[in-house]
Computed example of a mutant assay.
Amino acid sequence: MSIARILIIAGSDSGGGAGIQADIRTVTLLGGHAMTAITAVTAQNTTGVQGVHAIPAEMVVQQMDSVIGDIGVDAVKIGMIGSAGTAAAVADRLAALDVPIVFDPVMVATSGSVLADEATIAAFERLMAVATLVTPNIPELAALGGEEIAVRFGTHVLAKGGHGEGPMLTDRLIGPGGVLKAWSNARIDTPHNHGTGCTLASAIVTGLAQGRDLIDAIERARKYVREALALAPGLGQGRGPMGSPLGFHVHA
């Protein structure tokens, strides 16, 4: 029996709601095998980020090489990158891989804590150039240069609408030629939405690793995230983690 092998390059969230912890949970529940290259360790809970310790770029790449050389990789998800040097080193290593790559350009945590400085954000260009899909929210998309990044970097962009106003939210898939598809749903009114971006990107990359096309992978991922939001257990005093849809139908 074969299983989709997903390499996750991201930071650790001590509160378990986002980051590597959310990524592993999502990949596992959707039937994949999660491997990790941890870029940073955070002291974090539902109220914010209290501390960040970046892992040296050489160690991040060593983690990548360790699993790529032995287990192999069917797709890669990039989340919190830690530093500009790490972004460059990771981009160099990924350029040699011919697999789908989903880049979630994490800049600010759900709590509002900044997770990427200006130099790191500038270095995101290297990662966008090797990505199959970039998944920014509204503020991240603006910081990266807007919808034209799809043309500039020859990639696809899932412009997420969760930070927009109003009772409805719309996500748009943009390719170099323009908008390919849009999805609109009623907003799920909950403060417990920590980790939505990490979870969505990990769900998409799992679908791609399993052989789904991009639109199909996005559609299943959106359903998964909405179910996880509806199942949020209400933990913590701030923006708590989403739930784990243990009964989610992998082939939905």
Score class of each variant (00 low, 15 high):
A91D: 04
L115M: 12
D104N: 08
P105C: 06
E125P: 05
E118H: 11
L97V: 00
D98M: 03
A109Y: 09
S113Y: 13
M107P: 08
F103R: 03
E125I: 03
S111D: 07
P105F: 09
T110S: 11
M128W: 05
R126N: 11
S113V: 11
P105S: 07
P105Q: 05
V108L: 11
V99N: 00
V114E: 15
A95E: 09
V108G: 09
E125G: 08
A123T: 14
A122D: 14
A109P: 14
S111C: 10
E125R: 11
L115P: 15
L127H: 08
V90D: 01
T120H: 10
P100Q: 02
A123C: 07
F124W: 06
A116P: 14
V114A: 09
I101V: 12
R126M: 05
A96E: 13
G112F: 14
M107T: 06
A123M: 09
V90Q: 02
R93E: 01
R126W: 03
T120Y: 10
L115A: 12
M107F: 07
A116M: 15
A96M: 01
D92S: 09
V114I: 15
M128K: 05
A122I: 06
L94W: 01
V108M: 12
L94E: 02
E125T: 10
L127N: 05
F124G: 08
V102K: 06
I121T: 12
A95N: 10
A109F: 09
D117W: 10
A96I: 01
I101H: 03
S113H: 14
V114T: 15
S113P: 11
S111A: 14
L97W: 02
M107L: 04
L97G: 01
E118K: 10
L94Q: 03
A89W: 03
G112S: 10
L94R: 03
A122S: 07
A116Q: 15
A95D: 08
D92E: 13
A116S: 14
L94A: 01
A109N: 08
V102W: 04
A88S: 13
V90M: 02
A119D: 15
M128L: 15
M107E: 09
D98R: 09
T110M: 06
L97D: 02
E118N: 13
A88V: 15
D92L: 04
A96N: 03
L97N: 03
I121A: 05
P100H: 01
L115E: 14
V90C: 00
P100S: 01
V99L: 00
A89M: 03
V114D: 07
A91L: 01
F103L: 04
E125K: 11
F103Y: 07
I101Y: 04
P100I: 00
